[in-house]
């Protein structure tokens, strides 16, 4: 392999990752939704540490991309807004993790 081509390979792999998920706040949101079936806004705010405004903004973007669904469910007799990853969102998140891992694996060891 010609010198420098490993770096180019890494760079091209990183450049090809899903930028929607690549943003740290959205990555965190997707990670915390990935490990559960569904959750509400309070759960995400608690786990990610984002402000309500920030959380809302990022979830809107993920919802537009059809990675996250926001639904009203009844828990007992009270309606509750619950979020969950769509199938597309789960696949996208798994692919993102794989892409980043592949990119990191191309780097030489210390």
């Amino acid at each position: 392999m010609p010198p420098g081509s490993e770096k180019n390979n890494t760079a091209s792999l990183v450049n090809s990752v899903d930028r929607l998920i690549h943003e740290p706040a959205r990555f965190n949101i997707m990670a915390y939704l990935f490990v559960v079936q569904s959750a509400d806004y309070t759960y995400l705010k608690t786990q990610t540490g984002l402000s309500w405004g920030n959380l809302n903004s990022h979830i809107s973007k993920l919802e537009t991309a059809d990675y996250v669904t926001v639904e009203k469910e009844f828990v007992g007799k009270k309606p509750h807004t619950m979020l969950h990853l769509t199938d597309k969102g789960r696949v996208a998140f798994s692919s993102y993790r794989e892409s980043m891992q592949n990119a990191l694996n191309t780097l030489p060891p210390k």
């Binding site: 559960v36 079936q37 959750a39 309070t42 759960y43 608690t46 828990v75």
Partner: peptide, 11 residues
């Protein structure tokens, strides 16, 4: 629940 939020854990 009002503080930690509601979550449905995985199957």
């Amino acid at each position: 629940k009002p503080r930690l939020g509601l979550v449905k854990f995985s199957i």
